[in-house]
Amino acid sequence: MQTSPAKLLILIALSLVIIVEGRTVLAFFGVDIPPLETALIGLVVIVALLIWAIRPIRGSPSETE
C-alpha cells in the first residue's frame, strides 16, 4: 500500500467534494450534468484511488519476479 488508510479516506472525501462543487460551478456557466453522471464520475475516481493505493510499489521486495 502506498498510503495509509486515513490518507486514503481524506483523498476520497476531498475528491467527492471537488466533484460535487465542480458540478455546481459548471451549472453557473450553463453546463448541466445529471446527478447520475456525477455519481458515476465519483465512483470512477474512488476506484482509481483504491487501485492506486493497493497496487504494489515498483521494485519493492514484496513484489514477485
Rank of each mutant, 00 (worst) to 15 (best):
A48S: 03
E63S: 11
L8G: 12
V45K: 06
V25F: 08
D32T: 15
P56E: 11
I41K: 02
I51Y: 01
I54Q: 12
S60T: 13
I41F: 05
I18C: 10
F29C: 04
V47I: 10
R58S: 15
P61A: 10
P56V: 08
G30W: 03
E37A: 12
E37N: 07
Q2E: 09
I19L: 03
F29E: 11
G42E: 02
T3C: 14
S60W: 12
A13R: 06
V44D: 04
I54Y: 11
E21G: 08
I19C: 03
E37Q: 12
L14C: 09
L14I: 15
F29A: 07
I12V: 09
V44Y: 04
Q2M: 13
T38Q: 01
D32Y: 14
A53T: 04
R55V: 11
L43M: 13
L11M: 10
G59R: 03
F28Q: 11
L43V: 03
G22N: 00
K7R: 15
T3L: 14
F28N: 09
R55M: 11
P34M: 09
V20F: 05
V25H: 06
G42N: 02
G42Q: 04
R55D: 05
L8S: 09
S4N: 12
A13N: 06
A53H: 04
V31S: 07
A39E: 04
S60K: 13
V17F: 08
I57V: 15
I18E: 06
P56I: 08
I57R: 15
T24Y: 00
K7Y: 15
S15R: 05
G22A: 01
K7T: 15
E65Q: 13
L11T: 11
I57A: 11
L9K: 14
L36C: 11
V17C: 09
I10V: 15
L26D: 03
A6T: 13
K7E: 15
V45G: 03
T3Y: 11
L50W: 04
V47K: 00
M1R: 08
L9R: 14
P56F: 13
E21H: 06
V25W: 10
F29S: 07
V45E: 00
R23W: 05
V44N: 02
P34G: 05
L40G: 06
L8P: 05
F28H: 07
A13P: 01
T64G: 14
I18V: 13
I33K: 01
A53N: 07
I19T: 04
S4C: 10
F28T: 04
G59A: 06
A39D: 07
I51S: 03
E65W: 11
E63C: 09
G30N: 03
L9C: 14
L26F: 07
A48H: 09
R23G: 02
G22C: 02
L8W: 04
G30E: 02
A53Q: 07
P61L: 14
L26P: 00
L50T: 02
I46V: 09
G30R: 00
I18L: 08
A6W: 14
G30I: 00
S62W: 15
D32G: 13
L49F: 02
P61H: 10
I41M: 02
L43D: 08
P34S: 12
S4M: 10
A13S: 10
L36V: 07
